[in-house]
Design a protein around this nucleic acid. Structure first.
Lengths: 328, 328
DNA sequence: AGGATTTCCGCAAAGGTTTGCTGTGGAAAT
DNA sequence: ATTTCCACAGCAAACCTTTGCGGAAATCCT
């Protein structure tokens, strides 16, 4: 079977293509009688507009691009799910690509987005991306780019972020409400914007509390976090371990379990997470919630704004809240 | 800035559009001199073909559709990641939609796929889909549909599945190698093909061992699994709990932890999983591996086959292997 | 009734590519 | 000096929609 087109409908009805097109969109020029005939036939023939032809003619597609380092990630998947859902509800489809943290692939993916004439793209930068040069063409072509999670430092671009500073602050506050004296804080890849922000905020919060010992370490993966944690715990057992992310938390938990330590009895735990992982355990890990879902919804809303009106580049923040598990 | 088109290039060079088009594809009709001039200019102008126009003309797009109940799922995400990666390497982009297990949305999504003229779609059926009627039009239009994971019972369609029977068999074998006398097996939504297959296979494997007590329960979510497990454990403590999936495992683990039980000392655990969740814990949970990645790769390879040649509908199986954690 | 509006619809171009066919000039063959 | 042939490039149609403009018929007004 071949697809139904305006032409086919017009031939059957013995009217012109343009009349059919207008009838289908309730254009006032078309009489009710004709319109109903057309709509009726279109339904029985199950007419479905050719999105390619539409976009070719109108130059605006109902396609959005979304790029993350990898789809398979506790945080991104909820973000993606949220964006997809809201997109669908607004008639948009989402084209999803992974950069694998490779700037070259990232650049190629942008090209793919352009070739498919997306109306806008959501991007979580690869951790190895040094500058925004591969995005220049997007800006030139005025394709809205909404960065999320790991965003560029530059101002003048659209960013939707978790309240990184605030969440680190909240973490610090939470810690300070307890009599912890020594803290081991493990962060992720130091090249990421979220890492920098969270680390700076945490350090800053503890500057007024010099009697508290704050050790800071970095790890690029769960495996590294596990190793780093092992090393650190061999030297000294802190009162609490703060984890910047799920990745880190997973490594830390393994070490703790392997060492036969129990939380919160032997050591306290606090992490930043969307909650999926912390709630798998018992007791549940106390965490500062950074919801991928909320971020996704915010990102989509902002995108819609950008597409419909020329929105000034802004940095949007999604709030962080504390979830009390039982690890403190 | 506006996009570079063949026309723009042809005007600058003072040649015709068709010559430019042919030059860019190394058509033998075009002289080397002309070709090089064209390619050179195309590069400096950063020409990027309009995918919409190409597909409109050629009727074949480099777009694939992928639909899952929800992206945010331990198994699907690895499947999606694998499909996306292989697609990218083969010049395809992937459009991803979620059905939310709603047959109506599922049907609308198929329509979206058609409108965007995808060359093929991967579908994991929603658990509430009763028949394949909404897929008829895909078949009519000869758009390849590759079902995966939760697939229809009908034959005559393309299916890529985990070796459900085999994995359940493997589970049974593994259990039988130990002196376990009472087994609690918790399965997922009984409407799913994977549930049916796994359950039947497990039952079947134990028919020759009537001295072993096998209790079977169902749960549609982690929450339900937790409740069911609680109930069952209150009545009687089995030697081992078999979980059909991560969803179930998560619920079971919570119950076990809440009850202060330790595995493998008090109770043994065996699950079917892609490994992400089982390896988060310590000791790691022993599982039958059903790799979303392998499945994704198989699905893509099969899709490519379908697109390039008229492949006969087949059921492809991806093998299952045992991963020894420490929960037996 | 005759002109002025309205109502309703079609023509044709445009958007960017691809491709079968035609056309040109020059070199080689006769 | 014709004819033949080949290498090279352009014409034009097609894919499907959208939309500005123009035109015919029907309706209105005085």
């Amino acid at each position: 079977m071949t697809n139904t087109t305006l032409k086919k409908i017009s031939e059957i009805l013995g009217i012109s293509v343009s009349t059919v097109s207008r009838a289908l969109k309730h254009h006032p020029d078309i009489s009710v009688k004709t319109r109903e005939k057309v709509i009726e036939l279109a339904r029985t023939l199950d007419y479905e507009p050719n999105a390619n032809a539409v976009q070719l003619r109108t130059k605006n597609s109902k396609l959005l691009g979304l790029m993350v380092p990898t789809i398979s990630n506790y945080f991104y998947e909820t973000f993606i799910a949220a964006v997809e859902e809201d997109s669908r509800k607004n008639g948009y489809a989402v084209m999803i690509l992974q950069s694998g943290n490779d700037p070259v692939i990232e650049s190629e993916n942008l090209k793919l987005f352009r070739q498919n004439r997306v109306s806008g793209v959501f991007v979580c930068l690869s951790s190895n991306t040094k500058d925004l040069s591969s995005f220049e063409k997007m800006f030139d072509l005025e394709i809205p780019v909404v960065f999320f999670d790991n965003v560029p430092q530059e101002s003048g671009v659209h960013k939707v972020c978790l309240a990184d500073e605030k969440s680190a602050h909240l973490a610090a506050e939470t810690i300070l409400q307890h009599p912890y004296q020594s803290i081991l804080a493990i962060f992720g890849n130091p090249a990421l914007s979220i890492t920098k922000k969270r680390e700076a905020a945490l350090k800053n919060a503890f500057q007024a509390h010099l009697h508290i010992s704050l050790m800071i370490e970095h790890a690029n993966s769960s495996e590294e976090a596990k190793l780093v944690c092992h090393e650190m715990l061999n030297k000294h057992l802190p009162d609490i371990i703060f984890c910047m992310s799920d990745e880190v938390l997973i490594g830390v938990l393994k070490t703790i379990q392997e060492k036969g330590l129990r939380y919160p009895d032997n050591i306290a735990l606090l992490t930043i997470s969307n909650g999926t992982i912390p709630r798998l355990f018992h007791p549940q890990i106390t965490y500062i919630e950074t919801s991928g879902e909320k971020l996704g919804k915010a990102a989509f809303a902002h995108m819609l704004n950008c597409i419909q009106t020329k929105t000034q580049p802004t940095e949007l923040l999604v709030d962080a809240v504390l979830f009390n598990g039982g690890s403190l």
